[in-house]
Computed example of a mutant assay.
Amino acid sequence: MDKLTVICPVLVKVRVTDGYKQKLSTGIQQAIRQIDVQMQHLEFQARRVVAELERQNPQGIPAARQQFEQERSRRLEARQKLLDKLKEVARLAPGEEVVHGQLQSLMELKVGDRWQEVAGMEVILEDGVIVEIRPTGGNVADG
């Protein structure tokens, strides 16, 4: 056998531009606003449930409050993570490459291929356009 087709990972990276940073920041800010709306809805719902429990089952109020507080804490934690991510985006330098995701590709290996060149590939995007396809295995020692 002198050739083999295998499934290989393809790393997708994005080259940072001002447009990329703006798009990413806008998406994160939108997610933060959505969490804020959810928090307002949760507070309204909590007041409504507590008022209902006061009339029907006052013993259930502490458990309901605890459940709402857990949900509130979970959303506050998610909001804080988004704020941290927003700070990270602000620190990205133009031209820097960041991992966007991973795909899989079929690759044909042949006897005589250089392992460093076929061990993995990465695709570089800039403003939504593929600007480079290159091997990732350049630092792998010969084996």
Score class of each variant (00 low, 15 high):
residue 61 I to C: 02
residue 133 I to A: 05
residue 79 R to Q: 10
residue 1 M to K: 06
residue 96 E to P: 04
residue 81 K to W: 01
residue 79 R to C: 00
residue 39 M to P: 02
residue 58 P to N: 08
residue 126 E to H: 07
residue 103 L to W: 10
residue 51 A to Y: 12
residue 48 R to K: 15
residue 72 R to Q: 04
residue 72 R to S: 04
residue 56 Q to R: 14
residue 125 L to P: 09
residue 79 R to V: 00
residue 86 L to Q: 05
residue 71 E to W: 00
residue 25 S to C: 05
residue 103 L to C: 05
residue 77 E to A: 12
residue 20 Y to V: 07
residue 86 L to W: 03
residue 67 Q to H: 07
residue 90 A to P: 03
residue 114 R to I: 14
residue 120 G to N: 11
residue 84 D to G: 07
residue 117 E to I: 04
residue 49 V to A: 06
residue 143 G to T: 09
residue 90 A to N: 07
residue 21 K to I: 01
residue 126 E to W: 04
residue 44 F to L: 12
residue 5 T to D: 07
residue 29 Q to F: 01
residue 120 G to H: 08
residue 30 Q to I: 04
residue 28 I to D: 02
residue 136 T to G: 13
residue 73 S to I: 02
residue 104 Q to K: 12
residue 107 M to F: 05
residue 134 R to G: 05
residue 114 R to D: 14
residue 15 R to S: 10
residue 20 Y to W: 15
residue 3 K to L: 08
residue 104 Q to G: 03
residue 130 I to N: 07
residue 141 A to W: 12
residue 130 I to C: 06
residue 43 E to Y: 06
residue 3 K to W: 08
residue 8 C to N: 13
residue 36 D to L: 04
residue 58 P to E: 10
residue 112 G to C: 05
residue 115 W to A: 09
residue 52 E to W: 10
residue 71 E to A: 09
residue 97 E to V: 08
residue 81 K to I: 02
residue 115 W to Q: 08
residue 9 P to T: 11
residue 137 G to T: 13
residue 99 V to L: 09
residue 76 L to F: 03
residue 86 L to V: 02
residue 7 I to F: 00
residue 88 E to Y: 01
residue 87 K to C: 03
residue 12 V to E: 12
residue 42 L to M: 13
residue 83 L to C: 00
residue 123 V to M: 13
residue 20 Y to Q: 08
residue 109 L to Q: 04
residue 141 A to P: 11
residue 22 Q to S: 07
residue 119 A to S: 15
residue 13 K to N: 11
residue 110 K to Y: 06
residue 11 L to K: 15
residue 79 R to A: 00
residue 25 S to N: 12
residue 50 V to M: 12
residue 115 W to E: 09
residue 140 V to F: 02
residue 40 Q to E: 13
residue 5 T to V: 15
residue 99 V to P: 00
residue 33 R to T: 09
residue 109 L to K: 01
residue 63 A to Q: 05
residue 65 R to P: 01
residue 62 P to W: 08
residue 4 L to R: 06
residue 16 V to Q: 10
residue 134 R to C: 11
residue 78 A to P: 00
residue 131 V to S: 06
residue 38 Q to G: 03
residue 65 R to M: 12
residue 37 V to Q: 14
residue 134 R to W: 03
residue 22 Q to M: 02
residue 38 Q to R: 15
residue 120 G to Q: 09
residue 119 A to T: 07
residue 140 V to Q: 08
residue 50 V to R: 09
